[in-house]
Simulated scan of single mutants.
Amino acid sequence: MPTHFDRFTCGSCDSYLIPGRNAQVRTQSGHVVVTCACGAHARYPYQPERPESKV
């Protein structure tokens, strides 16, 4: 299954997660935390963008 589909499917109840309807998506210290309406959590790492330096 492609990653963009797998990350928006709940591992506990197998429902498709729609942010704002049945899922909350939050960022927390280098991770994206997705919370399903059933209460299950999934965490995925991310690299925050670095601001470009002005020389």
Rank of each mutant, 00 (worst) to 15 (best):
H41P: 10
A23E: 08
D6N: 12
P45T: 12
S12Q: 12
E49N: 12
D14P: 08
H4W: 00
C13L: 00
T27R: 09
A42H: 14
S29I: 02
F8I: 10
A40Y: 04
C38F: 09
S53F: 13
T9Y: 03
G11F: 06
L17R: 00
T35S: 01
D14V: 00
Y16D: 05
G39A: 09
Y46V: 13
R26D: 03
R26V: 11
C38L: 11
S29P: 08
Q47S: 06
S53C: 02
V25D: 02
R21F: 12
K54F: 15
H41E: 13
C10M: 05
Q47A: 03
H31S: 13
V32M: 02
K54R: 15
P51S: 00
T35L: 10
C10N: 00
S53N: 12
Q28A: 14
F8A: 01
T9A: 10
P19G: 08
Q47I: 05
E49A: 10
A42S: 15
L17H: 00
V34Q: 09
S15E: 15
A37T: 11
C36L: 01
A42W: 06
C10Y: 09
R21A: 03
A37V: 09
G30S: 07
S53A: 13
A42F: 13
C13M: 06
C13D: 04
I18A: 07
Y16F: 13
